[in-house]
Simulated assay, not measured.
Amino acid sequence: MLRSLQGIVLRSMDYGEGNKIISLFTPELGKVSLMARGAKKVKSRHAAVTQLFTYGDFVFFKAGGQMGTLNHGEIVEAHHKLREDLYMSAYASYLVEMTDRMLGDEEGSAYLFEQLKAGLTAIESEKDMQIVVHLYEMKMFELAGYLPVTDACAACGNHMELTMFSPSLGGCLCARCRFKDNQAIAISEGTLKLLRLFTRMDIRRLGSVQVKPETKTELKICMRSYMDFHIGIQWKSRSFIEQMEEYDI
């Protein structure tokens, strides 16, 4: 069946002497694997449109559960800057890696597609990359059914004095329950407010934000700990981001 859909390239890998296989994320069909014949060749009409992060219009043939074949592609947004800047490339890679590894084949989500598109645009527009990533991580938690509890204590339901964050118990803890998890992370009021905001904010509405360095550190610890506990995937792109942070690249 011949399909014509918009999509974002999540992964692009060489196959054989001149071909590429791409993982394409579309709002209607979700994640689709396509063979792009001859795309490795410099003069190929598929060379540009199959690059990582590319958002475009794709025409492809797909029958049943078989891998599709790319017939034609037109670039809507190339996202050159995301591939050329080391920091932007690392954070954008984390967004597409999460999408690629956490979604099953042909698991569609028009909303998630718009969030990914907005996230890549926000990074390229030089908005706070860490904040963009945390917002998208929340979308992934929601997709997986692990959205953290931020409006009440995850242990007792109390809405007051939420001072800790517990990945193992599923969210924030009040002062009374803080000792139920000795690995819980102390959080400030500013961090709590942002965690609550992240659970419901549309990335398309993200403007310029200024977050205190200490708040960003708390957020990073909370979100990475929660991701590791509930999702348990070794993210290649996040490991690279952590290396950049460690060596202050």
Rank of each mutant, 00 (worst) to 15 (best):
G64V: 11
G64R: 15
Q66W: 14
M67V: 10
M67Q: 14
G68S: 11
L70F: 00
N71G: 11
N71I: 00
N71P: 07
G73R: 05
E74H: 13
I75E: 14
I75N: 14
I75P: 10
I75M: 15
E77D: 12
L82S: 02
M88Y: 11
S93E: 06
Y94W: 08
V96R: 01
E97D: 08
E97P: 02
T99L: 08
M102G: 14
L103I: 08
G104K: 14
D105A: 14
S109V: 06
A110P: 11
L112S: 06
F113M: 04
E114H: 11
Q115A: 05
L120W: 05
I123F: 03
E124L: 04
S125I: 03
E126A: 09
K127A: 04
M129L: 15
Q130F: 01
V133N: 02
H134K: 08
L135V: 04
M138C: 13
M138T: 13
M140W: 00
A144I: 15
Y146M: 11
L147I: 06
L147W: 04
P148C: 09
P148K: 08
V149A: 12
C153W: 03
C153L: 03
A154P: 07
A155S: 12
C156L: 06
G157H: 10
H159W: 08
H159F: 09
E161V: 05
T163Y: 12
M164I: 03
P167F: 03
S168N: 07
L169C: 07
G171F: 01
L173V: 04
L173G: 07
C174V: 06
R176M: 14
R176T: 15
C177H: 04
C177N: 06
R178L: 12
F179S: 15
K180W: 10
D181P: 00
N182E: 15
A184C: 05
